[in-house]
Amino acid sequence: MQTRGLPGLLLVLPALLLLVTLTLYPVGYGFWLSLHAKHSLFPTQTFVGLDNYLYLLSDPEFWESLRIGLIYSVSTIVLQLVLGVAAALLLHQSFFGRNIVRGLVLFPYMIPTVVAVILWKWMLNNQFGLINFGLVSLGISDEPINWFGRSYIMISLILVSVWQFFPFVLLAVLARLQSIPTELYDAARVDGAGPVARFLYVTLPQLASVLFITILLRSIWMFTKFDTVWLMTQGGGAERYIRTMPVYAYLRTFNYYEAGMGSAVAIVMFFMLVGAATTYFFLFRGEDQS
């Protein structure tokens, strides 16, 4: 009963209109803004062409935010992939209480970012934190580490982000693992494949498509991650060392009130992602992605 016709379009229209006005239009409007010098609060603006972009080219703070953003996103993506896949393989095994463990392990992803950040700020607190207590009493470190100081803030941020987001990878991979027919493993065993060969020739090829899409989504979302990073910058005095591009765009707009410049940073981010995603598709999209 795939009915031809207008009623279908009418049913979709409200949702579509909302999506267009509240997401697609703002992206276009953001591009328009980036060509203007505009104060964030007042309704006036001047057309400046590509001046905002040209300014960014010679802006050391912009380049620094790009460098920090790349360090942050690449390291968190790699770590959450490794941890997420390993955890998925582990939780795919059968053991007592598996369902409860599966549920608990997903919690970091489901709780508000602000809670994730404050609880890690408490865990990593340099005076009363549990982590420092552990490190000092195990003799790994002589004195408590200042996790929010200049040298360690990036590591702390990466730790919190990986903790918060590896369950996404875990969830995606685990769901795929469960859909691999067990007969394939039986067949491989009869064919003489040991555990390693079964992982390489049965499991891994089946995971290829889910890893492809997971890496794509995680990369987009880590590169544009704002709330975790922003909340980590609050207090501690080392904000500068984790100022990624999204944070820089925010600061430009809401602290310096340069909405045009802030939009330019966001648009640069957008085009970098489009470019990276296109390259990624071109390089890795095998003929048997399904």
């Binding site: 997401t23 239009y25 703002p26 992206v27 409007y29 953001g30 803004l33 989504l217 987009i220 979302w221 544009t224 991650k225 704002f226 999204p246 765009a249 925010y250 707009t253 909405a259 802030g262 939009s263 966001a266 981010m269 957008f270």
Partner: peptide, 10 residues
């Protein structure tokens, strides 16, 4: 695939 930061300003 959009992230909030890409549209929040406009």
């Amino acid at each position: 695939m959009f992230a909030p930061i890409m549209i929040i300003i406009p």
